[in-house]
């Protein structure tokens, strides 16, 4: 299988005033295309920093990061924007939908920045929303939906541009167990359809769904083993 993510000796330092904090301390990580991976670790472990770098929202202080065969660790910000747009789909704990746009427009957002035509945007967004069972809510505002429905909109937005990886940060953290279960079902389905799914979580039950759990502690990866 092709490597979709390959990092070599990733280091990330933060300058907090005079104190230098090392959030990542040499992370070597490989994720194959089509894998379903959970990244686990307590708060302060460097889990969020790793997710931000994998998601191209941040750049490492040193080390290499290849995403889908492209070296992205030293890219300029505007090039990273383009990478985020075409290769990464984000799902956040707090959904992060734009409140004044209806859900169709929310899902169209990445397509707009991709420069797709209005008609093509609408077509793709409708199709994806249908696949998460929200065809009858296209004109609703996010505030008119339940938490589970909102997260399904967020997933639709994340996958609408057909990204290389789906990167979810505690996607069930704000949901009850029923809705959370539904969302995990969707991730499992997407994985079975060949998508690469990475879930960042501290919830063991969530992590159990993944094919592999990567534990991170004090800025290093502890071990990577299959859950079976």
């Amino acid at each position: 299988m092709a490597e979709i993510i390959a990092t070599k000796n990733l280091i990330k330092d933060y300058n907090l005033g005079k104190v230098k904090v090392r959030a990542l301390n040499g992370v070597d990580l490989t994720i194959e295309a089509g894998e379903f991976v959970a990244i686990m670790g307590p708060s302060g472990s460097g889990k969020s920093t790793l997710m931000h770098i994998i998601g191209c929202l941040d750049s490492p202080t040193s080390g290499e990061y290849h995403l889908d065969g492209v070296l992205v660790s030293q890219m300029a910000k505007d090039d990273l924007a383009s990478i985020r747009n075409s290769k990464i789909g984000f799902v956040f704990q707090s959904f992060n939908l734009l409140p004044h746009l209806n859900i169709l427009k929310n899902v169209e957002l990445p397509l707009m920045y991709a420069g797709e035509s209005l008609r093509e945007r609408s077509r793709k967004a409708r199709e994806i929303l249908a696949s998460v069972g929200l065809s009858d809510r296209l004109r609703h505002k996010p505030s008119e939906l339940s938490g589970g429905q909102r997260q399904r909109v967020a997933i639709a937005r994340a996958i609408v541009n057909n990204p290389a990886i789906l990167l979810a940060d505690e996607p069930t953290g704000n949901l009850d167990s029923q809705a959370g279960g539904d969302i995990l079902e969707i991730f499992t389905r997407l994985h079975s359809q060949g998508n690469t799914v990475i879930i960042v979580t501290h919830d063991k039950a969530v992590a159990q769904r993944a094919g592999r759990i990567i534990r991170i502690m004090d800025g290093r990866i502890e071990d990577g083993h299959l859950t079976g």
């Binding site: 747009n85 984000f90 920045y113 541009n161």
Partner: peptide, 16 residues
């Protein structure tokens, strides 16, 4: 701010 963050996350460049 949050909206801007979302837009950047889904691929908006600084210029956009």
């Amino acid at each position: 701010t949050r909206e801007i963050g979302v837009r950047i996350a889904v691929g908006a460049r600084r210029r956009d």
